[in-house]
Design a protein around this nucleic acid. Sequence first.
DNA 1: AAGGCGGGGAA
DNA 2: TTCCCAGCCTT
Length: 404
Amino acid sequence: MKSKNELTDSRLEKLSIGWQEDKITAFQKDFLRWYDRERRLLPWRENQDPYRIWVSEIMLQQTQVVTVIPYFYRFMEWFPTIKDLAEAPEERLLKAWEGLGYYSRVRNMQVAAQQIMENFAGEMPKTITEISTLKGIGPYTAGAIASIAFDLPEPAIDGNVMRVFSRLFELDDDIVKPASRKVFDYVVRKVISHQDPSSFNQAIMDLGSGTCTPTSPKCDSCPLQSYCGAYQKGTMTNYPVKSKKVKSRPVYYLAQVIRNQEGAYLVGQRADTGLLANLWTFPLVEIASEEYADLRNQWQEYQASQEPQLRLDLVAEEAFDLSDWIVTNRQDQAVVWQKQPVGEVTHVFSHLKWHVLVTYGISKNSDYPLEAQQRWLKPTEFAEYAFPKPQQKIVELLQGLHYF
DNA sequence: AAGGCGGGGAA
DNA sequence: TTCCCAGCCTT
């Protein structure tokens, strides 16, 4: 029993029926003319420098153009050449990427830069096969660099391409499945311009971004309207077909914000693998959902009770009443802890949701012994470390409460 | 093939 | 709020 969308020769043959040579030529001409007229002027489109195009394509994975632009300028300033990238300290890389997410992208990019220095004399290789050997460069990015920088007629299959082409040719292949990529690769190769593959691929990106959008596509102003199978039938929003529904798992944390007498805060570096690898946060302790719920209730009752909030001046002295505080031992040094959380921060990742109750403590010793990978940082020093979004949200919460 | 990996903008 | 978006790596 063959499934409907199996990639058979007969199906591939069928996909190209109706698009004879003259129609393909007209399609390319209309599309490239539209791109010439409407193309976005972006910093990485000023020339065909493979390094700039590479950096932009990595940044643009899972990230919107408007977000990327300021990061791109700063990145090119900090690391003007592939050599600079290959030799950069990791802290600097992470700081350049802070807030962009998917931090392994920048680590992989540095590995690739080192590969280029070692294997390709410091120059981006010019064949799709060689480009594909670089760390962090998969089929999409290899195709994008090959076509945009080197004018090679290679498809660059990303979400935009799959959305545009699934509507154009009414392809109901599930775009979540890796196998579907072959279908789109086949169809794009049929119609890609060999005269100007660079503009052709970028035209798809611009069309997918501004016109052929996921919801409510702007078909009235689409240059491909007369070619679009889904438009003829009014079924645009049935495409692309996507099966996966991801639900995020909740995770519960207690953030321990500890200030010392010098006004510095304790932060720790995360493990060098996994989520937010090597980034810095306040100490986070994972707790059970039940404990989280209890503490959260306490916090809300405390809020409602109108009791005096944290008094830093009292905390600094020996004589304050400990009944509202927890005293914990860290490396035999007393840390005084406010029993009630001062607030809550949540952050949604693609696969999990963090719930963070923020507590505030005072270390009574300036020479507090640190665990491995921990440092005392004054707020002015925060600029030199890379922090993930949830950490920034905690800082904003504390600033709002005038604790920071 | 399936799951891990951030964060922003639209609905 | 919730929903949608989505390449590459590791397992």
